[in-house]
Amino acid sequence: MADIAVLLKQVPDSNAKIVVSGGRLDEGSVNKWSMSPYDEYALEAALALGGSITAITCGPERAKKMLTDAAAVGVTELMHIVVDDLTTLDSNQVSSILTAAVQKTGATVVFCGKQAADTNAGSIGPSVAEKLGAACVTMVSELSGDSSGFLALRPSANGMERVAVSAPCVLAFDKMSTELRRPNVKGIMMAKKKTIEAMSVSDLGVDIGSSSVTLDNQSPPAEKPAGQKFEGAESVASVVSKLRDEAKVI
């Protein structure tokens, strides 16, 4: 099995309360940070294949915790590119950093989530593939593989398709039907002993230029209007017209 690099991003937990103040997410108010859910599937897929895995993250100091979590479920190598504020970088810069990190590990196979749960941009997988000159398969929901390559299931225009791909390649994962592995106490004790290889962008020796995107303003999603209740046969006509004209679902 080829060495696999898994790209992981730490995001606010899906249950965490999000507070926006002054047009920016207030990071201090996030009480729990977690591995982005699609990245968890990428990691699970890599662990299921076995072999040497390097988990790579680009982010602030707090992201170390996520790498230790990855070690607790069996990741062997941990790499942290320390960037204090990811929001100052655009996706293109981040993918340049991650590409350089992957090259440093020597891995020819890269797994990542199809998008991160905070920005939902979905550009890292394809962009890293482009920079590595590797094949890219996105929205993978099932995977099998051996030393000669992988067979990945992904959506196609009229259903699902199975794509065969071999290294060098980047696979971007969707939710899969496999259950994610849980850490255990022994894994946690081992993880504590693992060292995290930490470095800065300049240590990587990559020129990422300047950001071409400026973040103007962040705002919470609009509140959902209150639900409406209908009772009795006489309301059928109004329900149908609301479903057709307002909700536009029939």
Partner: peptide, 8 residues
């Protein structure tokens, strides 16, 4: 590690 066990 105690915190990781807690979260697990």
């Amino acid at each position: 590690e105690e915190l990781m066990v807690r979260d697990m």
